[in-house]
Amino acid sequence: MANQLVYGLLLLTTATAASAAAGIEGGAPANISDRSYLISFHDENGIPVCAGALIKKNIAVTAGSCFAFHNGWKFAVGVLGGTKFLKVSDYTFSARFSYNTWENDIAVLRLTESVEANYLTLASQPRPTGTSAVLTGWDANNTVVDVDETIISAKDCVSGKYKYKEGEVFDSMLCGLAKDAACGALPGSPLVSGNKLIGLASWGNGCGDKGNPGIFTNIESFKSWIQNLQNKLFAGKKYKN
């Protein structure tokens, strides 16, 4: 269980200190107009620390760790490829988020303005082993890139083939094995399959590269929670977790 905490702290330290220099490795350039749901979160120093995805005109989801470890009210949220920056109007992250195991790594937020983009639909069905997916984020040159991923079962993920043990991968998580290196993805980077948002980059042992899976928030397991929140946030109502 300590692996998640150690990795999460390293991930956050790396994102804070060197995000401008680091980035996804091994990705293929993507057209931002086709990935206009992709958003970025910049801290008060202008450093990108997280990513996320738009699911409505002013509602987005990201990793809960982004708000657990950063002051969300100070975020500048880059939309439409960073051509515009907005502020966070309201947000909440799961009260069940674990700082030790990284379970329930999910947050929902409302932006101060609407964005005309290709919003993502939330996955409503579990994705079986072998499902193809695409992780989207930025490389070291700030180019939007895609990384091909294959979903593997939690049982397989902790079977001994990889660097994970029993008790480290939970129902709130997905394992995704990258075709090429996927190290450097910001927390909250969206994982999409069949035009559905199925996951958000959360943590990993070895950055999800060299044949080792990355761990993603399992969106399907949070669909009802997200929809309940988005209805309140979309209506402009304050939500207390």
Rank of each mutant, 00 (worst) to 15 (best):
residue 15 A to E: 06
residue 239 Y to W: 08
residue 176 G to L: 02
residue 36 S to A: 12
residue 194 G to W: 14
residue 211 G to V: 00
residue 49 V to C: 07
residue 211 G to Y: 13
residue 39 I to W: 15
residue 92 T to H: 10
residue 217 T to R: 05
residue 241 N to E: 05
residue 149 E to D: 14
residue 1 M to D: 01
residue 223 K to V: 12
residue 177 L to F: 06
residue 202 S to G: 14
residue 33 S to Y: 13
residue 9 L to G: 00
residue 156 D to V: 04
residue 84 K to R: 01
residue 107 A to I: 15
residue 240 K to M: 12
residue 38 L to E: 10
residue 164 Y to F: 04
residue 195 N to P: 05
residue 102 W to Q: 05
residue 59 I to T: 02
residue 184 G to F: 06
residue 230 Q to M: 07
residue 13 T to W: 00
residue 14 T to V: 07
residue 139 D to R: 02
residue 110 R to H: 00
residue 195 N to S: 04
residue 144 V to I: 11
residue 219 I to E: 08
residue 116 E to Q: 11
residue 175 C to A: 12
residue 156 D to L: 11
residue 207 C to R: 03
residue 40 S to H: 02
residue 112 T to Y: 02
residue 142 N to Y: 09
residue 42 H to T: 12
residue 74 K to Y: 10
residue 120 L to T: 13
residue 214 G to W: 04
residue 141 N to G: 00
residue 179 K to C: 11
residue 164 Y to W: 07
residue 93 F to Y: 10
residue 106 I to P: 02
residue 106 I to Y: 04
residue 18 A to P: 00
residue 126 P to M: 14
residue 215 I to K: 05
residue 58 N to H: 03
residue 227 Q to S: 08
residue 191 L to E: 11
residue 75 F to E: 11
residue 86 L to S: 06
residue 239 Y to C: 02
residue 7 Y to C: 12
residue 48 P to V: 03
residue 200 L to Y: 06
residue 205 N to F: 05
